[in-house]
Simulated scan of single mutants.
Amino acid sequence: MRTDDLVGLLSTGITPLRRGTAARRFGISLPIATLGATALMAMVFGVRPDLAAVAKTPIFWEKLAFPLCLAIGALIATVRLARPGAKVGAGWPFMTTPVLVVWIAAVVTVVTAAPEDRLPALLGHSWRSCPFNILLLAVPGFIAVFWAVKGLAPTSPRLAGAACGLLASSIATVAYCFHCPEMSPAFWSVWYVAGMLLPAAFGAVLGPKLLRW
């Protein structure tokens, strides 16, 4: 078989993606992820009653900025990995920098706290449930983002699946911030990160199965 014949055989039945397909698919999936996580948070956990007061404090916005920056990085990575042969690229700084900043803040918080306050700063009141709460809120986004990427052409399905999971979980964590009473960077550095990594791990496992094309 000649090379031209082989190329023609392999390309049979393949239709090129229309311009703007990625933007349309993510334009659908991201609102579903955001609205789904927010609605679940409000229905299952409820908005914290002192939100109006705490929203006036810088620490609340710092807490919100942490998963928001991760969501931006995960979105960049997911969009790039949905293309054939692309790499994470510019998504890495957006994903790693906020984690490093929060870890540094956590170390400072723990070191400067009184000895009896160090463990409470790390565990808070909800360490047992926090990661699983984030996992629950990530479910709508997990499904929606995987749908968006499935319709494109990822060639690294495991890495793309992990990025999908991280995007869904970071959006879920932004929504969870409006319920969660924990205001210590030491808490976020462990339990928020664990909550965001769980869907990312599931995405890495399921990516090769769900993102095949």
Rank of each mutant, 00 (worst) to 15 (best):
I143A: 15
A138S: 13
S129I: 09
A144D: 07
V174R: 10
P120G: 15
T112Q: 13
L119G: 12
S126C: 02
P120Q: 13
W127R: 08
P115A: 05
G124V: 07
V174M: 08
G151I: 01
D117N: 12
L167F: 07
V111Q: 05
N133W: 11
R118A: 10
V174L: 06
L166I: 05
L159C: 01
F178N: 15
R128Y: 15
L159H: 07
N133P: 08
C130W: 00
L136F: 12
V145L: 01
A162E: 07
P120R: 08
T109W: 03
F142G: 10
F178G: 15
F142D: 13
D117E: 13
L152P: 07
N133S: 10
I171R: 01
S129T: 15
L166Q: 10
A153P: 02
S129M: 06
V111L: 10
L136G: 07
A138V: 01
A168Y: 05
L136Q: 08
V110H: 10
I143H: 11
T173C: 11
T112Y: 11
R158G: 13
L152W: 04
V174K: 09
A121N: 12
S170D: 02
R158F: 06
L166S: 11
L167H: 02
I171D: 05
L122H: 03
G141V: 00
G165M: 05
L122E: 01
A172R: 12
A153L: 07
A113R: 03
L122I: 01
T155R: 01
F142C: 13
R118M: 15
A172N: 10
P131D: 06
K150S: 12
T109E: 12
D117Y: 11
F132K: 13
T173F: 05
E116N: 11
V108W: 10
A163W: 02
V174W: 09
L167A: 04
L166G: 14
P120H: 08
R118D: 11
F132H: 10
G151Y: 02
G141M: 07
L167T: 05
D117C: 08
L159Q: 02
D117I: 14
I171Q: 00
I171T: 08
R118L: 13
R128F: 14
S170I: 04
L123I: 06
G141E: 01
P140Q: 12
C177Y: 04
H125S: 14
L119W: 07
L136E: 04
S169T: 05
R128P: 13
S170V: 07
L136Y: 11
T173R: 07
A175P: 15
V108L: 14
G151A: 12
I171N: 09
A144G: 05
V111N: 09
V139K: 07
F132W: 14
A121W: 09
S170F: 00
A162D: 08
A138D: 01
